[in-house]
Design a binder for these strands. Structure first.
Lengths: 153, 153
DNA sequence: CAGAATCGACAGTTTCCTTGACTATTTTAG
DNA sequence: CTAAAATAGTCAAGGAAACTGTCGATTCTG
């Protein structure tokens, strides 16, 4: 039990660091995307792009992915449509649904986000070394169950 | 340049994992705190507790810590007051200001959050080993400059 | 094929944060 | 030492982004 207490103290630092690191990273990505000329894009949009990227998705699928209601997803998609990041077509297999896919501008924004993220992580690799960063990623991959990629809580 | 491209691919996984891991952790903490009987406590409250914990803080200091306006911080403090997590007294050195400090209930909630976080991280330690988790924390500590601990965006 | 489930939209509401204007106090400059 | 500027906090109004509830249209299920 005493050993347990010691371990606890060693473990207690991680949550704050993880939350802080994620916040820092998100901020860096957000700023990087803006600097590359994609203004008015919120992180929630970026998380939506992840789901839309491969082959598009329905609004309900976007909602499920973000962990919000269909109404919220619908609004978000409409905003992305207005800004030219996505196109919305009738779904080929379901007349009730709409198929939302990225436009070229949407893809460009996605690439910009990747670049911005990479820029931040490259700085870390310079500090820790590429191998250490890769280990970090491997460790996280084992513990971070990729549930919903929610913007927030 | 080619090596650079290879490294990039190896690094590109980290951002999503870090964001996902942080989200998972936040969710776990939030649920753990609720299960321990502290209902209606949002993560933003938890971040405020961090600032209040040592010796209390003024409303403006809470605002600065959270990265929101004084008005928002004022409202948040009032809510914490209603729920019994903090007490508000006149500031001993500045008649304009209020000194906000945690009540015993506030401290209990803080401990509950620590326990919930620990519970999650202990599960990781079981998966990776304590030493590996500690390395993880050490790496993160070197790269994650603890800016504002915002709930954010 | 009839009932249940699902897709998305409309309307109204809530929550949380913002800007702007204001008073009271403290700090700074002349 | 006082007049001006800065700061602490509040009130009021408004907006962004989510929510619930309801609905018509379509698809799935038994």
């Amino acid at each position: 039990m005493k050993q347990q207490a010691v371990d606890d103290r060693r473990l207690l630092a991680l949550p704050a660091l993880l939350l802080g690191g994620a916040g820092t990273l998100m901020q860096a990505i957000h700023e990087g995307v803006e600097q590359r000329g994609f203004t008015g894009v919120r992180p929630a949009h970026g998380f939506a792009f992840v789901r839309l990227a491969p082959d598009g998705a329905s609004i309900a699928e976007v909602a499920e992915h973000l962990g919000v209601t269909k109404q919220a997803a619908s609004q978000l998609v409409e905003e992305l449509l207005r800004r030219g990041y996505v196109r919305v077509e009738p779904h080929p297999r379901d007349a009730r649904a709409k198929l939302v896919t990225l436009t070229e501008r949407g893809w460009a924004c996605t690439r910009a986000a990747d670049e911005a993220a990479l820029e931040a992580v490259r700085a870390w690799a310079g500090e820790l070394g590429v191998d250490r960063v890769e280990e970090l990623a491997a460790d996280l991959a084992r513990v971070a169950r990729p549930g919903r990629l929610r913007p927030l809580w």
